[in-house]
Protein backbone atom coordinates (compact mmCIF):
# COMPACT_ATOMS: atom_id res chain seq x y z
CA UNK A 1 0.00 0.00 0.00
CA UNK A 2 1.35 3.42 -0.95
CA UNK A 3 1.59 5.88 1.92
CA UNK A 4 0.22 9.41 1.77
CA UNK A 5 3.84 10.63 1.90
CA UNK A 6 4.62 8.62 -1.25
CA UNK A 7 1.52 10.01 -2.95
CA UNK A 8 2.69 13.52 -2.03
CA UNK A 9 6.14 12.82 -3.52
CA UNK A 10 4.60 11.56 -6.81
CA UNK A 11 2.18 14.49 -6.93
CA UNK A 12 5.09 16.89 -6.50
CA UNK A 13 6.97 15.20 -9.39
CA UNK A 14 3.81 15.34 -11.51
CA UNK A 15 3.14 18.99 -10.56
CA UNK A 16 -0.33 18.23 -9.21
CA UNK A 17 -1.84 20.01 -6.22
CA UNK A 18 -4.03 17.45 -4.41
CA UNK A 19 -6.52 17.84 -1.58
CA UNK A 20 -6.19 15.66 1.54
CA UNK A 21 -9.16 13.60 0.32
CA UNK A 22 -7.51 13.04 -3.04
CA UNK A 23 -4.25 11.95 -1.40
CA UNK A 24 -6.03 9.29 0.67
CA UNK A 25 -8.10 8.11 -2.31
CA UNK A 26 -5.13 7.93 -4.68
CA UNK A 27 -3.04 6.04 -2.11
CA UNK A 28 -5.75 3.36 -2.12
CA UNK A 29 -6.54 3.36 -5.87
CA UNK A 30 -2.96 3.53 -7.12
CA UNK A 31 -2.07 0.66 -4.80
CA UNK A 32 -4.89 -1.44 -6.28
CA UNK A 33 -3.64 -0.85 -9.84
CA UNK A 34 -0.01 -1.50 -8.86
CA UNK A 35 -1.06 -4.74 -7.13
CA UNK A 36 -2.78 -5.74 -10.36
CA UNK A 37 0.41 -4.91 -12.28
CA UNK A 38 2.44 -7.04 -9.84
CA UNK A 39 1.59 -10.12 -11.94
CA UNK A 40 4.09 -8.78 -14.48
CA UNK A 41 6.87 -9.24 -11.91
CA UNK A 42 6.21 -12.99 -11.85
CA UNK A 43 6.91 -13.47 -15.56
CA UNK A 44 10.21 -14.58 -17.01
CA UNK A 45 11.16 -11.88 -19.50
CA UNK A 46 14.86 -12.77 -19.68
CA UNK A 47 16.17 -11.98 -23.16
CA UNK A 48 12.88 -10.43 -24.38
CA UNK A 49 13.48 -7.04 -26.03
CA UNK A 50 11.17 -4.19 -24.93
CA UNK A 51 8.69 -2.79 -27.48
CA UNK A 52 8.77 1.01 -27.42
CA UNK A 53 7.09 1.28 -30.83
CA UNK A 54 5.39 -1.38 -32.95
CA UNK A 55 6.90 0.20 -36.06
CA UNK A 56 10.50 -0.27 -37.08
CA UNK A 57 11.13 3.44 -36.56
CA UNK A 58 14.54 4.72 -37.47
CA UNK A 59 16.01 8.18 -37.74
CA UNK A 60 15.96 9.77 -41.17
CA UNK A 61 17.34 13.00 -42.56
CA UNK A 62 14.83 15.64 -43.59
CA UNK A 63 14.37 15.40 -47.35
CA UNK A 64 15.28 18.94 -48.35
CA UNK A 65 15.14 21.96 -46.11
CA UNK A 66 12.52 24.29 -47.49
CA UNK A 67 11.51 27.59 -45.97
CA UNK A 68 7.81 27.45 -45.09
CA UNK A 69 5.59 29.81 -43.17
CA UNK A 70 5.55 29.22 -39.42
CA UNK A 71 2.73 29.81 -36.98
CA UNK A 72 1.92 33.53 -36.94
CA UNK A 73 2.63 35.14 -33.56
CA UNK A 74 -1.00 36.15 -33.05
CA UNK A 75 -2.08 32.55 -33.57
CA UNK A 76 0.52 31.29 -31.12
CA UNK A 77 -0.74 33.72 -28.50
CA UNK A 78 -4.48 33.41 -29.12
CA UNK A 79 -5.08 30.82 -26.37
CA UNK A 80 -2.61 32.12 -23.81
CA UNK A 81 -3.98 32.96 -20.33
CA UNK A 82 -1.82 36.11 -20.21
CA UNK A 83 0.18 37.96 -22.88
CA UNK A 84 1.56 41.43 -23.45
CA UNK A 85 0.61 41.21 -27.11
CA UNK A 86 4.02 39.93 -28.14
CA UNK A 87 4.98 37.30 -25.54
CA UNK A 88 3.52 34.90 -22.98
CA UNK A 89 3.49 36.56 -19.57
CA UNK A 90 4.53 34.31 -16.66
CA UNK A 91 5.76 34.73 -13.11
CA UNK A 92 9.49 35.14 -12.50
CA UNK A 93 11.37 31.85 -12.57
CA UNK A 94 14.23 33.07 -10.34
CA UNK A 95 14.40 35.42 -7.37
CA UNK A 96 15.68 38.87 -8.18
CA UNK A 97 18.85 38.84 -6.08
Amino acid sequence: MLTVAEVERIARLARLALSEDEKARYARQLSAVLDYAAQLAELDVEGIPPTASVLAVHSVMREGDEVVAGLPRADALRNAPDTDGASFVVQATFDEE
Binding site: I10, L40, L43, P49, P50, A52
Partner: peptide
Amino acid sequence: KRRIMLGTYALSAGYYDAYYIRAQKVRT
Protein backbone atom coordinates in the same frame (compact mmCIF):
# COMPACT_ATOMS: atom_id res chain seq x y z
CA LYS B 1 -4.84 12.79 -12.32
CA ARG B 2 -4.92 9.10 -11.40
CA ARG B 3 -3.19 8.16 -14.65
CA ILE B 4 -0.64 10.98 -14.47
CA MET B 5 0.23 9.82 -10.93
CA LEU B 6 0.44 6.18 -12.00
CA GLY B 7 2.65 7.04 -14.98
CA THR B 8 4.87 9.33 -12.95
CA TYR B 9 5.34 6.55 -10.41
CA ALA B 10 6.14 3.94 -13.08
CA LEU B 11 8.76 6.23 -14.63
CA SER B 12 10.30 7.46 -11.37
CA ALA B 13 13.76 6.48 -10.16
CA GLY B 14 13.82 2.96 -8.75
CA TYR B 15 10.62 1.82 -10.46
CA TYR B 16 11.40 2.44 -14.15
CA ASP B 17 12.91 -1.01 -14.81
CA ALA B 18 10.49 -2.91 -12.59
CA TYR B 19 7.37 -1.42 -14.14
CA TYR B 20 7.93 0.43 -17.40
CA ILE B 21 10.69 -1.64 -19.06
CA ARG B 22 9.12 -4.87 -17.83
CA ALA B 23 5.74 -3.84 -19.27
CA GLN B 24 7.40 -3.07 -22.61
CA LYS B 25 8.96 -6.55 -22.62
CA VAL B 26 5.61 -8.20 -21.95
CA ARG B 27 4.20 -6.01 -24.73
CA THR B 28 6.63 -7.80 -27.05
